[in-house]
């Protein structure tokens, strides 16, 4: 199957699926798409620029909390809240990137983690603003300020699908652009890119901020989807979930992380219905993927193709 046909076919499937699914299954599919955007946003820095982060939940949570707080406490207006969520996530990434990108490797992991932890601390400790551990319940679906409400399941799904498609398209353009190629060059050998005259810091910084913007987008969508956000969505566990989604699917491939996100969401849903030990299973997934499938599912499929 050639690439354009695959794209058209999968788009058609995603467009038609609501008619074949129960409302519960449609909700699950919506969640997959939202988390797919989150995983793809991390993939931009991890997969393409080779910058690992253990704090990517910061931008997701910033988007979600901004939308939630504005909708509940200030004014429930879709355009205002949505835009503010994106702006706050982007500003957070712009600030954190200034500090984090001074470091490399393990230090980068620890610093991104520690910075995200600051936001977690605010969400957890500053009760009167954020609701603390109880989070923000009762965030309404988009409707106010729009010509029609997006509360109903199928409508909300299409809303998420459109933004997902937009995110995929924009990310596809970014990674194929000279900018995206330069990121890959930095991943392979930063020194060589410096010798070639690239200001590598500036490339990494822009990628970092863009990743924050897209993570914010997914956080915005998630708080509408879930109607609720809590400090858990700023935690190290959630940041690590993004990492495993990217690696499980295939880092550095456009849609691998989306696949990884879908698998993790589906696995959590089915397995935690069967056993209380979902977290153990998730831990085993981490161990198994790093040991046996470091290239992810896409990597496995490609290795298979090559062998055949």
């Amino acid at each position: 199957m050639t690439r354009p046909i695959a794209v058209v076919a999968s788009t058609l499937v995603l467009v038609v699926l609501p008619f074949a699914l129960t409302s519960y299954q449609l909700g699950l599919l919506t969640k997959m798409l939202i988390f797919a955007i989150f995983a793809m946003s991390l993939n931009l820095i991890l997969g393409y620029a080779g910058l690992p982060s253990l704090g990517h939940a910061a931008y997701f949570g910033m988007g979600a909390y901004t939308v939630g707080l504005l909708a509940l406490r200030v004014r429930d207006n879709f355009w205002l809240d949505f835009f503010a969520g994106l702006v706050m996530a982007t500003i957070t990434a712009a600030l954190f990137g200034l500090l984090a990108l001074r470091a490399k490797g393990s230090y980068l992991l620890m610093i991104t983690l520690a910075l995200a932890q600051v936001l977690w601390g605010i969400a957890f400790g500053w009760r009167w603003l954020t609701g603390g551990d109880d989070g923000l319940p009762g965030v309404p679906r988009p409707g106010a300020g729009l010509p029609f409400s997006l509360a109903e399941g199928v409508r909300f799904y299409y809303f998420v699908l459109v933004l997902f498609a937009l995110a995929v398209a924009v990310l596809a353009v970014i990674v194929r652009s000279p900018f995206g190629q330069a990121l890959v060059g930095i991943r392979e050998s930063e020194r060589r890119m410096e010798v070639l005259g690239y200001n590598t810091w500036r490339y990494k910084y822009v990628a970092f901020v863009l990743a924050g913007l897209f993570a914010g987008l997914s956080g915005n969508l998630f708080v509408y989807y879930n109607g609720f956000v809590s400090p858990a969505y700023l935690s190290i566990v959630f940041s690590a979930t993004a990492l495993i989604m990217v690696i499980l699917g295939g880092a550095g491939t456009l849609l691998g992380p989306a696949l990884g996100a879908a698998v993790i969401v589906l696995a959590e849903n089915t397995i935690s219905a069967q056993t209380e030990r979902w977290v153990t299973v998730l831990g085993v997934i981490y161990v198994a993927v790093t040991l046996f499938a470091p290239g992810g599912l896409i990597g496995l499929a490609r290795a298979r193709q090559r062998a055949a």
Binding site: L109, L243, I247, V279
Partner: peptide, 30 residues
């Protein structure tokens, strides 16, 4: 048994040890 099998890159090591952190924490809860 585990860490020795990995390449010396920070991300696989972090993911593997994070997986163990989850497993040990969940089994301790149990």
């Amino acid at each position: 048994l585990l860490l020795r099998r990995l390449p010396t890159e920070e991300l696989p090591q972090a993911l593997l040890t994070f997986g163990l952190l989850l497993i040990i924490g969940d089994l301790s809860l149990w």
